[in-house]
Design a binder for these strands. Structure first.
Lengths: 233, 233
DNA sequence: CAGTGGTCTAGACCACACA
DNA sequence: GTGTGGTCTAGACCACTGC
């Protein structure tokens, strides 16, 4: 089985995956150690290490010091979703993007918002509502709250021409985010904006972002009829 | 800035992130090369490489041979979702899991299914419907189709006690999967199973899996009222 | 305490993409 | 061509954790 080629960590990864698929290493069983595999494959331990590290990140195997490496019984697979700008999302569909501003106000953060993202009693927020269209059809309604203390300059931005989504991405970095998806019924007002019927289901995405512990923004994004979020893994 | 400690790739990663947040390296700008950074940080190039590679995987920076490394303008962030067994999902909530079998049949794959996952004219599929309960409240309705050719032994499995979800995970590996999420209205039948009203919105998850090009299974999972899928990144 | 994975190093060669 | 990232190596020490 000699070959002049060098062994790549991808080769090692594939071979390991094959052996798992073929039950040579059954789920739950202990795999050989890095040194042993390195000898078998004729490569450095670092190469085997990288292969196994990636498989562990992907949830295929489970590694523990001293205990060794085991094939996961119930591989907790991970699906990766891209979280793009709405504009990019729409343009990627080959559609023309249009932005429409709806409303703007500055107010003391309401109770539910303070609780949701962690703000003080007196903290002010900028509240923006707007729409994103694809080929002039309603695509997404955006309802966003921004912590003024995190970005005082926000008060001077003219959101009638640029979406808060876009401004934030280019001006305010964040370190942590929480995102969640659910299904909900559109109320009367939302129905008008999205050209839907009251009570119709819509896909709802909610996001909170922080920069090193300071809350930046909370946003609810309501997608129009027929929206699907898809990925491969 | 001498320190006796060795520099870890995590240190490098954090320092790079700080510089990006502080606009020392602005979005779109070219960062120093690996060799230069390795000298500055007093570590090996491999260490800087690992830090930058991970940042690239996370979508923070963009790397190209010869062209160098740039800070991403619109960081296409990735959110990772765990795709667990329903059982694990429910048990993680601290609830008691219960499985209920609804129906089973073997048939020639209907047109829409053949198109959806790529089956031949005569290919047979096993169709299973079942429910997953959390503390005896309806949690998820599962409507699953399994390619018999991919796993002939499936016909002998007694799905009245084990869920197809669980059986597949432990018996049939897969190499690729496509998953998508959407919002939809429950029809009359589904409403009865989920204890909801006809027309109420529900969160719908659809998944197809393949093993090296051979379609394994297509499943529609309808979640009950109030379901949210959440992650941090 | 001893074995396994986790990480760092210093050096080397390669592959790709831009000039 | 030539510079940058991509990867491999051989060796070393460390950290965690099961025994």
């Amino acid at each position: 089985m000699l070959s002049g080629e060098k062994i790549s960590y991808r080769d090692v990864k594939n071979e390991i995956l094959n052996r798992i698929h073929n039950r040579i290493w059954a789920p739950g069983s202990l795999m050989p150690g890095e040194i042993e595999l390195a000898e078998e494959f004729g490569c450095a331990r670092a190469t085997v290490n990288r292969a196994m590290r990636e498989l562990a990140e992907e949830g295929i195997i489970d590694r523990k010091r001293k205990a060794g490496t085991r094939v996961n019984i119930a591989p907790v697979r991970h699906a990766k979703f891209e979280i793009p700008l709405v504009r990019s999302e729409i343009e990627a569909l080959g559609a023309t993007y249009r932005y429409a501003f709806i409303s703007r106000s500055v107010e003391v953060a309401p109770d539910w918002l303070r609780a949701q993202i962690g703000l003080g009693d007196e903290d002010k927020v900028l509240h923006i509502e707007c729409m994103h269209y694809a080929n002039n059809a309603p695509f997404q309604f955006e309802d966003r709250w921004i912590n003024v203390a995190a970005a005082p300059q926000i008060l001077d931005v003219d959101f009638s021409t640029i979406s808060p989504n876009e401004w934030l991405v280019s001006e305010l970095p964040f370190s942590d985010a929480e995102i969640s998806f659910s299904a909900s019924a559109v109320d009367e007002r939302l129905a008008r904006f999205l050209s839907m019927y009251k009570g119709e289901p819509h896909f709802l995405s909610e996001r909170v972002t922080w920069l090193k512990g300071m809350p930046i923004t909370f946003a609810q994004m309501s997608y129009g009829r027929g929206y699907r979020m898809t990925t491969r893994y």
